[in-house]
Nucleic acid binder design. Structure first.
Lengths: 210, 210, 210, 210
DNA sequence: GATGAATGAGGATTCATTCAT
DNA sequence: CATGAATGAATCCTCATTCAT
């Protein structure tokens, strides 16, 4: 995260500004996750980057904007990761497995994001929708159609797809929190399998899975 | 929540002090849930009760103590409710159903507690264990033995009981958060059934349940 | 302005709070007049009073409220002074003389108020009406009727009373500013006479005055 | 206020630099008048001109210098206007009339300057003399001699000329402030006549004027 | 000459906690 | 016991100014 000394003057291009933005966001994520929103001091973010506080404020209008920037970047990365993992997987069963692995794996590697999600809710309880839920519904239709396919092929029990989505989603959502908060020390890989196993055998008709 | 005027003299007994403590806790729960930890103003709690701020500090050493008192009271009530609902239910399947209903029903009626759990984590991330998880494990052994019984009777698949506990727990935990945060408007009763249905058919051997 | 040491606890009555308010206002007037609005540091007001900054904020919601409190108190005192000086003076000529003397005398003794008026306009240019002008019109009707009487008695030229009011008012308003700003060192007493003399001989019909 | 694109190379001469200086001053006047000294952002001045902030600083050493430049330019223009209006007017009565009209007319057209004068005093209260008063005395001697002539000719009452100057000056000074601050909506033309009328009939011996 | 990114000092405000009455 | 006045630590944000490009 070493910042190259660079004096004032017009930046060569917007690309540098974007890089700087990323750096700030990365550092801010760590600071917010470690300290919470109120406790977090913008000065600390600046210090860690070796820049002045004013610089941070050049890139983000306010502490709040900085925080939401961090959450947003995190959720985007999550969505990308899950999408990438499931992009070319047409088999419903395999699709679900990949998605669960990608999801849990992402949070395993980015525990800070769990904190950020919690903080967002704790500090900004009046927001219409938490960032997480905004993105959550992005691929809703696509996933529902997968479930429908599964039902048609007879591998998934004939249950309203949205209910399935909800229960699976809640289960994963709860898992990342529990993992993180209870300091439960289970290799996420095995945990993913537990979750998949138990969900599968409720989602799929007897005999079709496992 | 009008406070009765109390004449001079020593309170009849400690019982009155306990009642006062309860009142403070109840008000504090609402204030913390509505405002968050930092935003919450002890003065507001005092005002709502019609007492002086100093009085609140007589019953709780600090704002932090007040907050944890509120969380603790909430979790205790939850545990009581679930325990009461499952006390005399020996059938493993019925036991799980009752527990899930009680759990989701409790949070449906006490949404403030969800906020408190979030706040606890957001503000006191360095705590060894969140209050929730401390209580969560209270009946761990009893429930494990229930699962074992189910396995022996052949109604529950032969899966390590702790894994079952974890997945079920995570699923419920995630559900209360999602319900609350996404403002999902589903009658908790039906939701409980969805959860039970999907969990069951993964938890129980094919054909044994439903 | 020595503050008596007084510990916490309910004040004996509201009277003490009022006194404290006055003290703060008096000190604030001096600080604002000397430093300007932005430059003025609420901490300085507190320091001079020997109290904590929080105490000042107990009495005034914000720096802005403190400032307007000071302006308001000043204008009130001015109005009182002028009203007291003209209360029982029914002769139009004498009335005007007394008013001018009281007005200029007040600002001579309270130069800080001139600064406050300037500051109010400089910092709060978007306000509907400056405090000064709000109070200015309080006795408008009474004064207009005096002028009318003078016209009827033939001692005042037949000119629309409001125009007379405006010119006289402007002249006085300009005088206090000029006095204060140009550091013009003229005994206000003599100056009042100059102003009266020149205004009179324009206000009164030829031969009636002087 | 669109800035023309300028190719590379040295400016044809200092004349261009002077023009640029004027543009900056004009924009700065508006910004300071609208926002006040502290609130005014040099960046805004630069933005409105479509130049970089650094450029403004090339022409003016500091924000303060920029502000005083604006005030100075304003006062210069005022003086020029009044001088031009009275240049060839030898009759004392007419001279005064022209001066008053020019003065009030100027501020009517340049209300920003009133704000600037106020701001100067509010922010730089420690200055020896406000810009206004520095220029005010420029033509002091010339005007005094006019008054003396009037006295000799018997059209002006035998009153110390400097007192007349002061009262007239204060009256005008107060008028522009009052006009501006109280949002008094009177056509300045008619107001000028009111002022002249009332001043005249105090300044001139009975029957000599009007 | 221009530019605009970087800097950091400066100050208002909040609110938990104390303790004299 | 109850009260609420007093306190001051803690921190966000603005914007004048600099100077490398």
């Amino acid at each position: 995260m070493e910042r190259k000394k660079r004096g004032p003057g017009r930046p060569r291009d917007a690309e540098l500004a974007a890089r700087r933005r990323e750096e700030i966001l990365a550092e801010a994520t760590g600071v917010f996750a470690a300290a919470g929103y109120r406790q977090a001091d913008v000065q600390v973010v600046a210090d860690r980057l070796g820049v002045g506080k004013g610089t941070v404020y050049r890139y983000f209008e306010s502490k709040e904007a900085l925080f939401f920037g961090a959450v947003d970047a995190g959720i985007r990365a999550l969505v990308e990761r899950v999408d990438a993992a499931t992009a070319r997987v047409d088999d419903p069963v395999e699709h679900l497995k990949k998605a669960v692995h990608a999801y849990l794996g992402f949070f395993d590697e980015n525990p800070d994001l769990v904190e950020l999600l919690i903080i967002e809710r704790a500090e900004f309880r009046d927001r219409e929708q938490a960032t997480y839920f905004v993105y959550k519904d992005r691929n809703y239709d696509r996933r529902v159609s997968f479930i429908r396919q599964g039902i048609e092929r007879g591998v998934i029990r004939d249950v309203p797809p949205d209910r399935v989505m909800n229960v699976v989603g809640d289960c994963l959502y709860g898992t990342i929190f529990t993992n993180h908060f209870s300091k439960r020390k289970i290799p996420f890989q095995r945990q993913a399998e537990d979750v998949i196993d138990l969900l599968m055998n409720g989602v799929f008709t007897a005999g079709s899975a496992k």
